[in-house]
């Protein structure tokens, strides 16, 4: 019963480690090509391509992180690596696996590669800090904590208000970009093409259109008068015609 279970777990572990190695290999490749580019093409390289490379690397780091935190990943900290023997001689197998970086599994490299704790100096310093933290009075610590929180929240407020200002300014700018309006275009064109809104001030038009008929009337009536028919009406008509005439003589 126990055996198949174990083998299953082992399989999962193996496959996930396989995946991890694949990811790390990818990252190593892109790092290598980036370094290569930096060394060989540094004269012609542009800043955007450098940024592209950084973006690629950070993307790969992200996927690696996601893989480690993912559900399929067994808790790696529960597994330990136990070195059974050190060998001071060259080991061609390990040299091939590490592409020549580690030539032998000896006492020189093992403390670095199999390290699970920080370096002794680092450990010492962190210990110092921990003891210092313990000696601080609880009251005092609380006070400092609140002060720090206050400062942080203040800074956060300032940053947020600046952000709001920025955004509103951006919005304003985008609103100002409304530099033309279709309605205005339409009314301008209607005015220039068809005279919409421009005809109102002139009141001479009815007079000028009225004028020709009256003069015509006068002429025909004059002709009639010349023919000697109903002279009295002709006279009055002429009079009314002359008063209607817009251009009166002084």
């Amino acid at each position: 019963m126990n055996n198949p279970m174990q083998s299953k777990e082992e399989k999962v572990l193996e496959s996930s480690i396989e995946k991890l190695i694949q990811r790390v290999q990818d990252m190593k490749n892109s790092l290598g090509s980036f370094i290569m580019k930096l060394e060989t093409e540094y004269t012609s390289m542009t800043w955007p391509t450098v940024l592209d490379n950084f973006a690629l690397l950070s993307g790969q780091l992200n996927t690696l992180g996601r893989l480690l935190k993912g559900d399929g990943m067994p808790t790696l900290r529960n597994h330990i690596l136990l070195p059974l023997a050190l060998n001071p001689d060259r080991d061609p197998e390990i040299e091939k696996l590490t592409e020549g970086r580690v030539v032998a599994f000896n006492h020189d490299v093992v403390p670095d590669y199999l390290r699970t704790k920080p370096e002794p100096e680092v450990e010492e310093r962190s210990q110092q800090l921990i003891t210092k933290a313990v000696t601080v009075m609880a009251d005092n610590a609380q006070k400092q904590l609140t002060v720090l929180n206050k400062i942080t929240s203040n800074i956060l407020d300032i940053i947020n208000s600046h952000k709001d200002d920025w955004e509103s300014e951006c919005n304003k700018n985008s609103q100002q970009q409304q530099t033309s309006s279709m309605n205005e275009t339409t009314s301008l064109l209607q005015a220039t093409l068809f005279g919409k809104g421009l005809k109102q001030p002139r009141r001479q038009e009815p007079v000028t259109t009225q004028q020709p008929p009256t003069s015509m009337q006068n002429q025909t009536q004059k002709i009639q008068g010349g023919a000697g028919k109903v002279q009295s009406t002709v006279k009055t008509n002429i009079k009314s015609g002359s008063t209607m005439h817009p251009y009166q003589r002084p």
Partner: peptide, 16 residues
């Protein structure tokens, strides 16, 4: 985007 220069149909403007 300062000015939108377009071909504006004059016949459509005529109806007012």
């Amino acid at each position: 985007p300062l000015v939108q220069l377009d071909k504006i149909d004059h016949r459509r403007l005529q109806t007012f």
